[in-house]
Amino acid sequence: MFVAVLWGCNFLAVHYALGHFPPLFTGALRFLVIAIPTVLFVPRPKVKLRWLIGFGLGFGTGQFALLFIAMNIGMPTGLASLVLQASAPFTVLLGSVLLRERLSPRQLAGIVLAVGGMAVIAWHQAEHAVLLPVVLTLLAALSWAVGNICARQARAENGLHFTLWMSVVPPLPMFLLSLVFEGPAADWHALATLNTTGGWIGIAGFAYIVVFGTLVGSGIWTTLMRRHPAGVVAPFSLLVPVVGMSASFLLLAERPALVEVLAGLVVVGGVLLGSLPKRQRSADVALAASSS
């Protein structure tokens, strides 16, 4: 639950960081700060290079480039934490198509529910002429799912080391994308104005993303996943959008429409239905419900 709180508040931190730094530049700096000590002090995981690069491009570059751009052009912070949960059904679908993993009727039903909820959210946002941020966030979730498939194929013995070394991949492509689409002037202006009120707020948000959202959150989560069955730990990630939307409501005055809240419940229910092992679903649903 503590990790869910850290990750839910991470979307707030992204919001504040993007208030000062350009989105692609933010992503590049985020991974660069983690990559330097990783290369110096963390042993490289014994996995095939293509899966490490694939994980870095999918989970790192694609997901966060698209998510940060979406939030920068108007994706509500709380809604972003919810829509990104589409990575779970996307992962199941990609596993079925690319890895020939059997898709059970329960998983298919969960995917249909989740996709239906996403469609309602997209439709409602389109009515208010803000469809593009939702589409970009969904593409970020798909990119995360691609990264999940690469991570599954890598079969790393130490998940934390694998995740840390993934951070070596995104900085170069994200810096190049930032130079092309945001321009060196925007990047330099963000650095030159750090000693301002907006700069300090941006630094605080950036520091939270790196320290609490990435190192502390991922470290605890990886430890939990190693010590306990995935079916027991994974459902708690569904609390992330609950925290994200609640924090955005309290601190950013975001007021999601009732139809978006109801559709969000359908999405979370679909993800839960499609993700949990059948033998543990009843117990875990009760656990997740009591935690909420």
Score class of each variant (00 low, 15 high):
193 T>W: 05
221 W>I: 04
190 A>D: 03
235 P>T: 04
213 G>K: 00
251 L>F: 15
243 V>S: 01
223 T>P: 01
250 L>D: 05
200 W>D: 02
233 V>I: 15
241 P>N: 00
195 N>S: 02
245 M>P: 11
227 R>Q: 13
255 R>Q: 15
227 R>W: 12
231 G>K: 08
229 P>H: 10
199 G>R: 11
211 V>N: 07
226 R>K: 15
254 E>P: 13
246 S>C: 07
224 L>P: 07
209 I>Q: 15
229 P>S: 12
254 E>R: 03
198 G>N: 13
211 V>A: 13
200 W>L: 07
220 I>H: 04
239 L>H: 09
202 G>M: 06
234 A>Q: 13
236 F>M: 06
238 L>C: 03
219 G>S: 07
200 W>F: 10
215 L>V: 14
226 R>W: 11
233 V>Y: 05
192 A>P: 11
226 R>S: 15
215 L>W: 14
207 A>W: 06
246 S>P: 11
191 L>K: 12
190 A>K: 03
236 F>S: 05
254 E>I: 01
210 V>P: 08
219 G>M: 07
200 W>P: 00
204 A>D: 11
235 P>I: 00
195 N>C: 03
239 L>K: 02
251 L>N: 04
230 A>E: 09
250 L>Q: 06
213 G>I: 02
215 L>A: 05
245 M>H: 10
245 M>Q: 09
205 G>H: 11
240 V>L: 01
256 P>F: 04
252 L>P: 07
193 T>R: 14
195 N>L: 11
255 R>K: 15
239 L>P: 10
245 M>A: 12
203 I>L: 14
202 G>F: 08
245 M>F: 04
216 V>T: 10
220 I>E: 10
241 P>L: 00
206 F>L: 10
218 S>R: 14
239 L>S: 07
253 A>R: 15
243 V>F: 08
197 T>M: 06
225 M>G: 03
